[in-house]
Design a protein around this nucleic acid. Structure first.
Length: 492
RNA sequence: GUCCCCAUCGUCUAGCCCGGUCUAGGACACAGGCCUUUCACGCCUGCGACAGGGGUUCGAAUCCCCUUGGGGACGCCA
């Protein structure tokens, strides 16, 4: 692993202690694509015994909210992504940016630009109309430093045209060429004095001692500018690793705007949404990690294994499409792995959501245990659990047609007698009794007597083991349901 | 449009860097079967891919080039 990294020419960064960060902007819930880069950063830090930091990019005061910050932190905690130092808020570091800006200005590495937004807009439009790529033409760069009385100004970086790097190294993508044609004197600070993204990132990452910048592929084109800024500020640049993006089923970048389309396909952009849909945090974590990273043929990873095995060398280069089926499969796996007592606790809120008054206890644990192998999400599990809290209101017509034949009343009658007397908690004895009845009434076919009862108890032909259901339901409720089924049959 | 990136089953991927062991392996999904009181779980089997074209080589999924396809980026957003 280590060899693979040094190979791509990251000597300077490699010697530094690992410090990585996740930098969400708090304008809404935590995005699945975002959380995936958070996971990769976190795993990378843990693997190397380094630090994982959080930086809240809330310079856009219009759209940033405290609630969003809380929600994001909450989602991270839910996934078990812990951070090492107090989160950094960009909104509280204006002084730091200002100092750096002044330094660049004083050193002649940046300049004030008094071009009006309308002028710039016009130039951009003209460029587009003439099918040229727009770049700032350097009007103010040529005007010289004396811009004091020309009104509001932005600060632009003075791109050192005579000395540009030809390429940079990326840990996952390899060598990326830098196209000077794409560069221009971009804006470091707006006319209201606030710093722009590409400037903040560099100042912050340098200030926070970030050793590796692990982020989405969509930032590749920002990297040359940031590199130039590191050089201008005489800071050692971090190593860069650009992860493939997470795509929706349509093959394009996950977008909050398509939430509605996604919902129909069983996926979401919001981490919180997966929580609501009844996914276990580790299942999501395992899924998202495995999307774009692999370790041989292994699919299931414990947290511990992930931290041991994860490294950037095995990260893929192509985008991954969210596959809800596989996520569900993983979730089902972890549902089965979760101890029943714990599962009961996780299930409870989903039952409350369905207006069930749940008391924690052995009964709920047994329900969770028997439902675990039959559900892929807590939602499904809660749906299936309703049979234990509500008597059936209707009986599945298809099941009725198939199993409530002419002899159903007779069978149920005999079953009622058994249920009235036997100890329902002795599931073996109950099964024995049912088998004897089957021998007597159905030529030994247990299904012939079990199915009518199952339908009577649940309204459906599919439930967990009938004997477990009887036990959990208890004598009184079981008899009541059988009674009602008998009425129903008589009426028909 | 310009620049950048990507390209193995429908999807996630192993293999690629260090060509032969690949009649290309695993997983999800799908189909069939076994187990079975139903439904699931589990187990077994099957279906299914090296985008195309040129090179290089005794030999290419693996190296090079082109084409095609897909994605991303082009703000006084982040």
């Amino acid at each position: 692993m280590e060899e693979a990294l040094s190979q791509v020419g990251l000597e300077s960064a490699m010697d530094r202690p690992v410090r990585v960060r996740f930098a969400p902007s708090p304008t809404g819930y935590l995005h699945v694509g975002g959380v995936r880069t958070a996971i990769f950063n976190h795993l990378f830090a843990r693997h190397h015994g380094g630090a994982f930091l959080l930086r809240i990019e809330d310079t856009d005061r219009e759209r940033s909210t405290d609630e969003a910050v809380e929600q994001i932190l909450d989602s991270l905690r839910w996934l078990g992504i812990d951070w090492d130092e107090e989160p950094v808020f960009q909104s509280r570091r204006a002084e730091l940016y200002r100092a750096h800006l002044e330094r660049l200005l004083a050193e002649g590495k940046a300049y004030r630009c008094t071009c009006k937004p309308e002028e710039l807009d016009a130039k951009r439009k003209r460029a587009v109309a003439e099918k040229r790529t727009y770049k700032y033409d350097g009007t103010c760069r040529d005007r010289g430093p004396d811009q004091a009385d020309r009104g509001p100004y932005t600060v632009r970086f003075k791109t050192p045209w005579e000395d540009l790097p030809r390429s940079f190294d990326d840990i996952v993508l390899g060598e990326i060429p830098i196209d000077a044609e794409r560069l221009d004197d971009w804006i470091l600070a707006r006319s209201d004095g606030s710093p722009t993204y590409n400037f903040c990132v560099v100042v912050d990452d340098a200030d926070m001692g970030i050793s590796h910048v692990i982020r989405g592929n969509d930032h590749v084109d920002n990297t040359p500018r940031q590199l130039l800024l590191y050089r201008a500020l005489a800071y050692t640049p971090p190593a860069f690793a650009h992860m493939p993006l997470t795509h929706g089923p349509d093959g394009s970048k996950l977008s909050k705007r398509r939430e509605a389309e996604y919902r129909a396909q069983g996926i979401s952009v919001s981490v919180q949404e997966y929580r609501k849909m009844g996914y276990l945090p580790h299942a999501l974590l395992n899924y998202l990690t495995r999307l774009g990273w692999s370790s041989g043929d292994q699919e299931i990873f414990s947290r511990r294994e992930l931290e041991e095995l994860f490294d950037l060398g095995a990260v893929g280069r192509s985008a991954g499409i969210m596959n809800p089926d596989k996520l569900k499969w993983l979730n089902a796996h972890y549902l089965k792995e979760t101890p029943p007592a714990e599962l009961a606790g996780l299930l409870a809120p989903f039952l409350r959501e369905r207006d069930v008054r749940v008391e924690p206890g052995e009964r709920l644990v047994r329900i969770a245990e028997m439902l675990a192998p039959r559900a892929r999400t807590l939602e499904e599990m809660a749906d299936a659990a309703m049979v234990f809290f509500r008597a059936p209101e209707t009986y599945d017509p298809k099941a009725v047609k198939k199993w409530w034949k002419a002899d159903a009343a007779a069978i149920l009658g005999r079953i009622r007698a058994v249920v009235a007397e036997i100890d329902l908690d002795d599931e073996q004895a109950v099964e024995q009794a049912f088998r004897e009845l089957a021998d007597e009434l159905a030529g030994g076919k247990l299904g012939k007597v079990a199915q009518p009862v199952r339908i009577a108890l649940s309204g459906s032909s599919a439930t967990p083991s009938l004997f477990s259901v009887l036990s959990v339901l208890g004598r009184q409720e079981s008899l009541a349901r059988i009674e009602r089924a008998l009425d129903e049959i008589e009426r028909a």
